Simulated scan of single mutants.
Amino acid sequence: MQRKRLIFVLILLSGLAVYSSLFFGITQMNPVHLVQEWISGTTSKAGLVLTNLRLPRLLLGLLLGANLAVAGAIMQAVTRNPLASPQVFGVNAGASFLVVLSLLIFPSLGTANLLYFAFAGALLGGVLVFSFASIRGMTALKLALVGMVIHLLLTSLTKGLILFNDRITNVLYWLSGSLSDASWLELRIVLPWSLAGLILAASLAKSLAVFQLGQDVAVGLGQKVTRIRLLAGISVVLLAGVTVAVAGAIGFIGLMVPHITRRLVGEDYRIVLPVSAVIGGLLLTYADVLARFIAYPYESPVGIVTSLLGAPFFLILARRQMKGGLR
C-alpha cells in the first residue's frame, strides 16, 4: 500500500512539474488557447515558445536531474559514504574545468565535442579525490573533506580562467548551472550518452545492493568488486560529464535525492535507482521553474536554487554522520 501511495504521489508531482515547466515563465500561455491552435493548425508566438523552448527544456531537466541523482546514488553505494555525490567528490568541478579550458583553447567547439572534455574532466576530478584520500588510509570523512578541497580548487581554477580571459566570460552564467539554453539539438546529443549511463547503472543495481553490506561480504558472495567499481565509475563519468557539458555544474541533487529515496523505499538499489531518477528529474524541474521567478522577469541559474536547498542538507547530514561515528 505504501508503494502504491508513493507511485500516486510521484505521478501527481510529475503532472504538476510538467504543467509548471511548460506554462510558467516570462511568456504567458493559456493551455486552452494552445490546444485550440493545435486543432486549427495555426501557430502563435506562445506556441513557438512552447514547442521550441519550453518542451525541450522540460525534457532536458527531467533527464539531467535523473543523471545527477543516479550518479549520486551509485557513488554513495560504491564508497559506502553518505556524503558522496558528483559535486562533493570533485566530479562536477573537474568536468567544468576541462570544458572551460577547452573553450579557451578551441573557441568554436560545439556541444557534441565538449562532451568528451567533460567526460575527461569528470574522470580527472574523481581520480584526484580518491588518490589524495587514499594516502595513509581512506576514511569516509577524509574522502568527503578531500573531495570538497579538490572541488574548491578546481572551481577556483575554472573561475580564474574565465576572469582573466574576456573571450569566455559569457560562460559564467552556465557555470552556475542553467537550463535556459536548452534545445532539441542538445537533447538529441545528450540522450544517447545519458541512456548509456543509466542502463549501465541499472545493470549494476543488484551488485550495488550487495555493496551496502560491505566489501568483505560482497567478495564472499562472489561479487567482482574491482570490475563493479570500474563500471560504476564509468557510469558516473557518463552521467555527470554529459550533464555538466550541457547545463553546467548543478550541485547537490546527487547528494540529496538518494537519501530521500532510501527513506521512502529502503536500501534495495533495484528500486532506489529508478525512483532516484524520477525524483531527481522532478527536483531539477521544480528548481528550474522556481529559478524563473527569483529575479523576475529575468531568469536565475538553476544551480542557485539547488545550492540553497542542498547546502543546509549537506551540513545537517555531515553533522549527523559525525555524531554517529563517521571518522
Rank of each mutant, 00 (worst) to 15 (best):
I189V: 15
V236R: 11
S300D: 01
L101N: 03
G303V: 04
A182W: 03
L179F: 12
A232C: 11
G233E: 03
Q321M: 14
Y286S: 01
G126I: 05
F293Y: 14
T261F: 03
L315S: 07
V236K: 11
A69M: 10
A182L: 05
L309T: 03
S156D: 11
A201K: 05
S300L: 13
G160K: 04
S21D: 13
R57H: 13
Y286L: 04
L58C: 07
G177M: 07
Q76R: 09
W193Y: 15
A247N: 07
V146M: 10
T139D: 05
A77Y: 00
V32D: 08
A46R: 10
V257S: 04
I168K: 03
E299W: 05
A196C: 08
L187Q: 07
T43F: 08
I279K: 10
A196S: 13
E267R: 15
L152T: 15
L187N: 08
I316R: 12
G233R: 04
I7P: 00
L290H: 06
L308Q: 02
M138P: 01
A122F: 05
L175I: 10
I304Q: 03
L308W: 04
V305S: 02
V99R: 01
S44H: 07
Y296P: 02
N170K: 15
L114M: 13
Q215K: 13
P192A: 09
A201H: 07
R54I: 03
G110L: 11
R262A: 07
T111C: 00
T51H: 06
V219I: 15
A133G: 07
R320V: 07
G254H: 04
G214N: 04
A201E: 01
A202Y: 08
Q212C: 11
L48P: 01
P56C: 06
V88I: 15
T169Q: 15
Q28K: 13
L152K: 02
T43S: 12
L16K: 00
L141I: 06
A218C: 05
L50N: 02
I105Y: 03
A209W: 13
V171K: 03
I234S: 06
G110I: 12
L308V: 10
A95N: 00
G110Q: 13
R262N: 06
S156H: 11
A277S: 05
P312A: 01
S156C: 11
A311W: 08
L153D: 10
W38T: 13
E37T: 09
S183N: 06
M138I: 14
R5M: 04
Y19M: 09
L204D: 00
G177A: 04
S108P: 08
V305F: 04
K142Y: 08
D216V: 07
A205R: 00
L101K: 04
P301G: 07
